[in-house]
């Protein structure tokens, strides 16, 4: 009976008794969730347009951030370095399209998935070779990102909000809005949606698949760079980020592989669920449940909705 009390009653009692702690936890979860959502966004962009499950999205985040910091260390001014990094992501997109996607066109999904694994290994080695394997500090000040914290006093107590977190949420929202406009209103955006719907139909009306793939990988690269800057500013730029990026997978599952709103909602659910679970139920199990809770939440959802929350219904024909 006591264990049932600890599981089903005690956490909620704690939540009501200390609403400021609850708010803090929710905020932390929200920020974490926004960053997961950003990584998932990169996945979704590429999956929609090319059907490639891009495992390298996580390492692209690290690679972009490393390039930015590395260039700055070599004396390049911060904003020039930012421009150069975007250029590097463009070159990467071209390289991936030319050397990987084009020769592998029409192969089965798992082969393409494996190829992005190869890309991951390549980028890990290459990044370490060029910029060194040590963790680096993100150049947040030079990019005029705010630092420090503000105390927010509600009628229930203090909540401390890191300014960088607020900036992350704002920038992420702006980026999603820009992407939405880009997808809905521009010529290229329409072409992207056409490709996402059907490769063959898109080809038949004269849309160049190659061009679309470069654009999509470049867009994912820019998303990766933004994620890298935000995440790097919160902790540091290191290759361990790549493992955190695996958290984007349950987010994708929740949202569905093809839905941009799904990526965002999924990210928030996972981020908040994970933090709440760790804070209120984690001690019961000895802590550290953050590592797998996201996957189990996703698994639970999946059993009831195999295509994710917002994914298109899977129709199978023989």
């Amino acid at each position: 009976m006591h264990i049932l009390y600890l599981i089903f009653v005690d956490p909620f009692v704690q939540m009501v008794h200390a609403p400021d702690l609850l708010m803090q936890t929710l905020w932390d979860g929200l920020v974490g969730g926004v960053l997961y959502a950003l990584i998932a966004l990169g996945f979704v962009l590429i999956f929609k347009a090319s059907g490639v499950f891009n495992f390298a999205q996580g390492i692209m985040v690290v690679f972009a951030a490393l390039t930015l910091v590395g260039l700055h260390e070599h004396g390049v001014p911060a904003f020039v370095a930012l421009g150069l990094t975007i250029l590097v992501m463009l070159v990467l997109a071209f390289g991936v399209e030319r050397l990987m996607l084009r020769p592998l066109v029409n192969q089965s999904e798992i082969i393409l998935f494996m190829a992005t694994f190869g890309l991951t290994y390549f980028l890990i080695g290459f990044g370490q070779l060029v910029f060194g394997g040590n963790p680096k500090v993100m150049i947040a000040d030079d990019l005029y990102l705010p630092s420090g914290a503000i105390e927010w006093k509600g009628h229930f107590g203090f909540v401390s909000l890191q300014k960088i977190d607020i900036a992350a949420v704002v920038i992420a929202s702006i980026m999603v809005a820009v992407l939405a406009v880009f997808f809905q209103r521009t010529r290229i955006g329409r072409a992207l949606r056409a490709v996402a719907d059907s490769h063959q139909a898109a080809l038949s009306v004269g849309i160049s698949l190659e061009q679309i793939w470069v654009i999509v990988w470049f867009a994912a690269g820019v998303v990766a760079l933004t994620t890298g800057i935000m995440w790097g500013a919160r902790s540091e730029v290191s290759f361990s980020l790549q493992i955190i990026a695996l958290k984007a997978l349950p987010v994708l599952i929740l949202g569905g592989f093809t839905s941009i709103p799904g990526a965002i909602v999924g990210g928030l659910i996972i981020g908040i669920g994970e933090k709440l679970g760790e804070f209120y139920w984690g001690p019961l199990l000895g802590g550290g449940i953050e590592n797998w809770l996201a996957y189990v939440i996703a698994l639970g959802f999946l059993i009831f909705r195999p295509q994710g929350l917002f994914g298109e219904k899977i129709i199978e024909r023989i």
Partner: peptide
């Protein structure tokens, strides 16, 4: 070690391209 990563990664892609 890092070169090994680069080479293995590149080889995986090459192998998949040559013989999926």
């Amino acid at each position: 070690e890092q070169l090994t990563f680069v080479i293995v990664g590149a080889l995986i892609i090459v192998f998949l391209v040559v013989e999926p």
